[in-house]
Design a protein around this nucleic acid. Sequence first.
DNA 1: TCTTCGTATATTGATAGTCTAGGTATTGGT
DNA 2: ACCAATACCTAGACTATCAATATACGAAGA
Lengths: 109, 109
Amino acid sequence: MSKLDMRTGSTAVMVLRLLADEPMYGYQMVKELQARSDGYFELEQGTLYPALHRLERDGLVRSEWQPIAEGPPRKYYYITDAGRAALHEGAAQWTDFSRGLLKLLDGVA
Amino acid sequence: MSKLDMRTGSTAVMVLRLLADEPMYGYQMVKELQARSDGYFELEQGTLYPALHRLERDGLVRSEWQPIAEGPPRKYYYITDAGRAALHEGAAQWTDFSRGLLKLLDGVA
DNA sequence: TCTTCGTATATTGATAGTCTAGGTATTGGT
DNA sequence: ACCAATACCTAGACTATCAATATACGAAGA
């Protein structure tokens, strides 16, 4: 099957979902999403970083640089209270949408 | 819950899904999608008509004007063989995506 | 008669998110 | 010396969506 295009707007809720478990840095999120989806979700860095900056601009996450003994420094992201609220809202919408679409497409694929 | 934004790219597969059952005209598709989703999928006309023209341009549907005794004429759309193939492809992708997202968001909403 | 509503197609301009492609820098292995 | 993996980032092009608007017909009601 051809490579997945990220569905517009899903990146934010995916990122918030990851950060709800623990703080993470960008590169880690890419790998974590791959791991949790058996390689299906391939988040491009050119998609992720702008999305993270939007989330921070909107107060849904905050970030903190952390120097690493070996390798380049990491920018850790933390979900905020507003971020958790947005996660619940966004998860509810995407869940409804996904269920509705699965119902509509049931038996076609 | 707030009004649904159509998720980018889902319009095409929804339209093809409807036309796989029977030929329809645009306005009818809007109503039919509402009916099949208990009012959840609200396809805007400014979203639908450009989408239909793209589908026709790409040979996935063809259209035919039909004069009506009462009221404005209707432009009926028919799915093509290429359209059915695209439907299966698109349905498979959206199904995988939806299942993956539901799994990721499970328990959050 | 005039207005409004439901039907039905369509376009325009603004907006927003994704992609490709590139850039910078560090570390470890060959 | 070189390359791959790690880790951050941006710019420009593209595409689909939205809100708003336009046209036109028929029916119902004031």
